[in-house]
C-alpha cells in the first residue's frame, strides 16, 4: 500500500501540516500571539504519549530485571552499641561525607551543601547565564588572568587543607579551560572549538559535576575502616 492510496493518514501520521483538518479562530477582539515558525508539530496523542509509554516500559523492564536478579541489601538488626566501621551514608550523600573528611562539619556538612542548593536555584536569574556567551569571546587576556588567579588561589587553599580529591579535578579543569581559550572560532580542532563556545556557567557546572561524581565514587569505593583510603580490589 503506497502512501498515495491512503484515504486517511495512518494512525501515526498525525503531522498537523499534512493532515488537512486545521482550524484557527481569529476575531478582531482577541489577537493571540501566533508566531508561525518553520517548526513541525505533532499531535501529543498518539505520537508523544506512545513514545513516553515506550520509555516508561523500558525503564520498568530494566528495573524488574534488576529486581529479579539482585536482592536489596539487608544487614543485621540495628544495634546502637555496635558501630560498623566505616558507617556510610546512602551513596548520594557519600560525596558530602567525603567532604566532611576534609572540612569541619560546619563547612562540609552545612555551608557547602547550602551554597550548592542556592547556586542551583539562582542559575536562571543571572543574565550572564541566560546569554551564555562563550567565556573567551570577549576580554580574553583579562579573563585568562582571572582564571590563573582563581586557580592558583584554589590550589593553594586546597593543598593547605590537603583536599587532594578536589584538587585532582580542579587542576585538569583549569588546564582544559586555558587550552580551549587559545583558539579562534574557526580553528580546525572541533572539540577545542566546541569548548571555546562554552560560557562560564558551563565550566562551573562541569567542574561541580566532575567534583561531585569523583567525591561520591571515592566515598563509595575507596573508603574503608576509619575512613582510610582502601583499594576496592584489595579485599
Amino acid at each position: 500500500m503506497s502512501e498515495k492510496d491512503k484515504k486517511f493518514a495512518a494512525a501515526l501520521d498525525s503531522d498537523s501540516r499534512r493532515t488537512p483538518v486545521r482550524l484557527a479562530f481569529l476575531t478582531r477582539r482577541t489577537s493571540p500571539h501566533v508566531s508561525v515558525k518553520d517548526e513541525p508539530f505533532v499531535m501529543t496523542w498518539p505520537d508523544a504519549l506512545f513514545r513516553i509509554m515506550v520509555a516508561a516500559q523500558l525503564v520498568a523492564i530494566a528495573l524488574v530485571l534488576v529486581s529479579l536478579l539482585w536482592d536489596a541489601p539487608l544487614e543485621g538488626l540495628a544495634d546502637p552499641l555496635q558501630t560498623p566501621n566505616p558507617a556510610k551514608a546512602p551513596w548520594y550523600f557519600l560525596g558530602l561525607q567525603e567532604l566532611l573528611h576534609y572540612f569541619p562539619p560546619v563547612v562540609g556538612g552545612v555551608l557547602i551543601p547550602t551554597l550548592v542548593v542556592i547556586a542551583l536555584i539562582v542559575i536562571p536569574y543571572f543574565n550572564v547565564n541566560i546569554q551564555a556567551e562563550g567565556l573567551w569571546v570577549r576580554n580574553k587576556p583579562q579573563r585568562l588572568r582571572m582564571l590563573a588567579i582563581v586557580t592558583a588561589a584554589l590550589t593553594v587553599f586546597l593543598a593547605v587543607l590537603k583536599v587532594w580529591a578536589l584538587l585532582a579535578a580542579t587542576l585538569p579543569m583549569a588546564a582544559l579551560m586555558a587550552w580551549s581559550a587559545g583558539v579562534t572560532p574557526d580553528a580546525p580542532n572541533r572539540l577545542r572549538r566546541w569548548l571555546f563556545s562554552k560560557p562560564l556557567s558551563f565550566w562551573i557546572m562541569t567542574w561541580f559535576l566532575i567534583q561531585a561524581a569523583l567525591l561520591t565514587i571515592i566515598g563509595v569505593y575507596f573508603r574503608g575502616a576509619g575512613w582510610e583510603w582502601v583499594w576496592p580490589w584489595s579485599e
Partner: peptide, 21 residues
C-alpha cells in the same frame, strides 16, 4: 528496614545536621 545499614546511615546523616550553627 531498621537494619545496621539503615541505622548507621541515618546516624551519620543526622550527625551532620547538628553541625548547623
Amino acid at each position: 528496614p531498621w537494619d545496621q545499614l539503615a541505622f548507621w546511615a541515618i546516624t551519620v546523616g543526622s550527625n551532620i545536621m547538628s553541625a548547623v550553627p
